[in-house]
Design a protein around this nucleic acid. Structure first.
Lengths: 102, 102
DNA sequence: TATATATTTCGAAAAAATACGATATACAAA
DNA sequence: TTTGTATATCGTATTTTTTCGAAATATATA
């Protein structure tokens, strides 16, 4: 994927309020997901995010997949759970790119 | 419109390659629209942009309207022409906002 | 092994965005 | 006033995105 295609994928991923909201929540997991039964160091598990969005489980999963395809989040499976984290490096790289090109 | 709605409108406007391309062209009007019959200080007139995109006149006009609604470009009518310019202040403000929130 | 939980993937419906040609509007010039 | 040029808007078809419930997959536990 060329850089301009990557930017396209990222901007499209950001072009939905729910996905931006998820990224914002993941900036402060302890604030938004304090009741998670597992350590927040792992990330936030998909089910917690479902409940926060209020959308159906499958819809939220689709949004998470979009964020992941764009590289904006990383995942880690532990047992039956899949933990999501922001990919700060990638987010910073995107911000640099858009600052430079826009 | 709240700030977060404005960001939403702007990101959606940026979420199409043709619209980002138009903004890029407008950064260097003398390079991309050197053959415009009118002074480039006015901006670039819609017809020149049509020709550059290769899309139909009406489709390009719709893209320009989207950019304008987002505040990313300003327009100025002179006679029968409508000239488009980047709105640098607004673009910078958006970059600041997204750097701070993303 | 059977059952339960967490998550993704599938199939389909609904909503939003894109694109086009045709028409309308605005202005200029004959 | 008529004609021509530039641009926006309308009506509509197509494509893409969003959303959901149901089914599939993966793991854990009884």
């Amino acid at each position: 994927m060329t850089e301009s295609q990557e930017i396209d994928t990222i901007i499209k991923a950001l072009a939905h309020p729910v996905r931006r909201q998820i990224l914002a929540w993941l900036k402060e997991p302890e604030r938004w997901f304090a009741d998670q039964a597992h350590p927040l160091d792992y990330g936030v598990c998909a089910g917690m995010i479902d409940r926060q969005t209020g959308l159906s489980q499958s819809t939220t999963s689709t949004h998470l997949a979009t964020l992941q395809r764009a590289g904006l989040v990383t995942t880690q499976r532990i047992g039956q759970w899949i933990y999501y984290k922001r990919n700060e490096d990638r987010i910073q790289a995107f911000l640099q790119a858009i600052n430079a090109t826009l």
